Simulated assay, not measured.
Amino acid sequence: MLLQWNKYAQRLGDKGHKIMESLLLISDPKLEGTTIIHELPNDGSKIDFETELSGLLGYLKGHLHNHNIIIKVIVNEVLENKFAFTALDKYNRLNEINPNLELLRKTFDLDI
């Protein structure tokens, strides 16, 4: 399924539909039975995606030889803005991203 999904995205990109291509490739879809679940970052991209949904669905049904396929679009607007103001906040944020920072700090006996 993922191979055909990517082929369709490539086909759209070759035709100049770069926005739809990027929406298809923004995340890998998940398959649950005959339901394809695709996550998009916001409602605007969902609206753009749904304009091309019938073409994608027809392509996948034909190439996968399964006419029971449905596509479910989920909007995942997790916006996690963490602002670091103090040196300790900045260190903690960087340590969340890369826990090896603590090892570096301890190895060289560095202050925060």
Rank of each mutant, 00 (worst) to 15 (best):
D43T: 12
L31A: 06
L94V: 01
N81L: 14
M20T: 00
E80S: 15
I37G: 01
V73L: 11
T35Q: 10
L79N: 10
K72N: 10
I112H: 01
F49V: 05
E77I: 08
G55Q: 06
I70Q: 10
E102Y: 12
L88P: 00
N68D: 12
R105L: 00
W5E: 05
P29R: 06
K7V: 04
N66R: 05
H65N: 14
L31E: 14
K72H: 08
I70M: 04
T107R: 15
P41T: 15
D28F: 14
D14W: 09
I36K: 04
E39A: 08
R105S: 02
G13C: 05
P41Q: 14
L24H: 02
E21W: 02
L53T: 03
N98I: 00
M20H: 02
M1R: 01
F85W: 09
L2I: 10
S27Q: 13
E32V: 04
I71W: 05
D109Q: 09
L57F: 05
K82C: 09
G13M: 06
L3H: 08
I74W: 02
Y59A: 00
L103F: 09
L25A: 09
H17V: 06
E77A: 11
L94H: 03
G16I: 07
I97R: 09
R11D: 13
D109C: 05
L53I: 14
A84H: 07
L101I: 12
L60G: 02
L88M: 09
I19E: 13
E102Q: 15
L104Y: 11
N6R: 13
E102K: 15
F83Q: 06
F108M: 05
G13T: 08
K106M: 02
N81T: 13
P41V: 15
F108N: 11
L24Q: 03
I47C: 09
N76P: 00
H17I: 10
S54P: 01
H65I: 06
N42S: 12
E32P: 00
L57T: 09
H63F: 08
E21A: 11
T86W: 06
L12C: 15
L56N: 05
V78C: 03
L101Y: 01
L79S: 08
I47F: 15
T34S: 11
H63N: 14
T35M: 07
A84Q: 08
P99K: 03
V75M: 05
L31R: 07
V78L: 11
S27A: 13
R93A: 14
Y59V: 01
K18A: 10
R93Q: 15
G44A: 14
